[in-house]
Every structure is written in C-alpha cells, then in structure tokens.
Simulated scan of single mutants.
Amino acid sequence: MNDRTSGPERAEHEELARLLPAPAERDLPPGRHLHHKDTLMRLIDQDSDRATARPRPRLLRPAVLLPAAGLALGGVLLTTLAVTGQDSTPAPSAASTGSPATSPRGAAVLLDRIASVAKKSDEQKVRGDQFVYVRSLQSGNGGTFGGPVQLTGPSEREVWMAQKAGPVLKEGLIHQDGSYIPIVVGVPDGEKPVGSPAGLNRPTYTWLASLPTDPDALLRRLGTEITRDQDARDTPVKDRNKDQDTFDAIGELLRETLMPPRTAAALYQAAAKIPGVSVDPDAVDAAGRHGIGVARDNTRAGWRTAWIFDSTTLEYLGERSYLIRNTSMGKKGTLISKTAVLERAVVDGLREKPSTTA
C-alpha cells in the first residue's frame, strides 16, 4: 500500500480518521491497526464504487398479526429500518441534525471496526423457557399512510420475546402507552392454528447463534430466508430488491433482539458488502444521543434510515429515518421516525424486568 493520496482521496481519508474512534491498544491484537490501515487504503484506491441498486418501497413484514390496538402501538416501527446514501442530508432542526454522508468506501471501514468491537462482547446464556427483554424509546409517524408526517413521542416501549424454538402461537408481549398487548399469531377463521417457528420473523437467540458467521455465507442465507418470506406473502417481483431487502432484514435483526457476539459481527461485515451503504457522520437517536450512522437511501420510497452507533464505544444506540426529497409525507429533511435502545436483558417471565430478576 502507499500513502500517495491527494485531493478528494486524501480528504476522504482524513475525514474517516476523524469520524472513527481511536482504537484502544489493549483491545486490539498485534497487527490489527495495520489491518484497518490496509483496508482503508485498499478501498480508497479502488477505481470505482460499488453500484447502487434500484431500491423498492419499504414493505412491512410483520412477524405476526396483531389486534388493531397492537398495530397502533407498533406503528412507530413502520419506517425505522430503511436506508441512507451519500448525497442528501436532513435539514438541521431541533429533532434532527445531519451532515453530508461519506462514501460507501468509508462505511466498509466503519462496519469493520464495529464488527471487531461487537465480536468482543460477552456471550449470553439464554434458555428456551426465558424471554428477551428490550426497553426502548420510540417516535413514529402517527399520520395517515402516505399523508403528512405527524411525529409522535418519544414514548417508552418494552417487549418480551419468547425464546422457544417453536412453533409457538404466543410470541411475546408489548408494553406501550400504558397498555399490554400480546404478540400472537393470527389465525384465519376456520383454519387450524399454526405456530411461528424461530426464524427471520421470530429471531430467538438460539436461532441467531445458528446463522453462518462467514459474511458471504450469511448474505446467501439471508437471501434465501427473505425470498421464502416474500413468496409466502405473495410480494410482487417488481417490489423486491435484493440489496434493500437485505439491509432492511439486518436492521430488523438488530432492533429488538439480544444478539450473539459472533452473529452481530458477521451481520455488520455482511452489511458492509451491500451496495449503497454509507456513513451518516452525525445521527441523533430518540434519547437525544449523538452518534455515527450506517445508512442507506431508499430512493423509490424517498427516505433514508441510519443505524446509530456511539462514536466512541461503537455500541448500537438506535435508528432514525427521514425524507431525502419532498414527498406527500413532507419536505426533504422531515424526520419520519427515531428509536433508542435503553436496555436489553434476559428474564424468566412476561412482565418481568431485569431489576426484579436481579
């Protein structure tokens, strides 16, 4: 490798050096710093960026059918997992701040660093009779579909997700706005109840741990799972886009699960291979915490979503989505939704909280 970069390439190199936290010597094995430098220089020296695929509208893929009240409470999640690119940024406001996103080459370097940190986190022991508990803040669009955005919240949300391999009919419980809403599998009239097994739409800790840890193998596995799910839902082929669907799926897996370290690392490494993924230098979650975002633009839908990470520890904080052009939902820069994960834990029963378990 060489250091004879100049002009835009040198500027990009210096910007990435500023954005990425300085790695701690005691946390990285010998040669790891050289690896990061080589990775960065190799990406900068590439002659062309990976092509950006044609995105499709964000399709909601709920794992279960909820009662009307449950759908209302869960509505804040409808748009929190889409995308981000490198050519647009939200207008500065009290709710959202932004700066121009860097190129996809910078996202690969950042995701490699995030994966390295995630892999060192503690492994959890989760039994099939337990529940994964996640407490978060959620702000979402309370307006009509396709109409002007009416941002709600933020309000606190708690979920308890069953860890049985399945199939199960009772998948968990949501607590939000003072109500407890069971997450149950919908059963059409006259049909026999069929439970939901662990999988992409009900990602238990054990199922997540079973996923390939090689990024390329993981991308193939996710592609198979996504296609199977879309076929089951009769999703039109014209509304499918491999790259966008994969980005969305990884984001959904990060949201309200407890992630095995090796799986988390592999997911971040896999995300780095998705065309169009870039860095959002200053992203703010629903708790007001500033961080660095990994994002992708859904140009057909007209919005960008970033997964937000602490810029020092690289811990996952939450997500935000905002419009990247003027649409019927509002002006460019309008915030659509934002989340903030406050707590993750394993508990023994529904409505049980980590403090009571301890």
Rank of each mutant, 00 (worst) to 15 (best):
R228A: 14
L34A: 13
A108F: 07
L342F: 07
T299L: 12
A17P: 03
A266D: 07
G276W: 05
L350P: 09
D38R: 15
A11L: 10
L78Q: 14
F309H: 00
G74K: 08
T224M: 13
D282T: 09
A51Y: 08
S179F: 09
T224I: 12
L253M: 03
L71F: 08
A287H: 08
V64H: 14
T213D: 02
L77F: 14
P167I: 08
V187P: 10
R113H: 07
T5S: 15
G293W: 07
V347L: 04
H35C: 07
A232M: 02
E343R: 08
R18W: 11
P62V: 01
G98Y: 05
L43F: 07
T246M: 12
D348L: 02
R157I: 05
E14H: 15
A272I: 04
V83P: 15
D297S: 11
A287I: 01
E256R: 10
Y180L: 06
L40C: 02
H290E: 01
S136N: 05
R220W: 09
A72L: 07
A101Y: 06
Q138H: 13
T5C: 15
R262A: 07
E352D: 10
V284P: 09
D112R: 10
L28N: 07
A340H: 04
L342T: 05
A17G: 15
A115Q: 07
S136V: 05
T334H: 15
A209T: 03
R228I: 01
D231M: 00
S48Y: 10
E9N: 13
D47V: 01
R262P: 12
P90C: 05
K332I: 02
S179R: 11
A108L: 08
R18C: 10
R220T: 11
S278I: 08
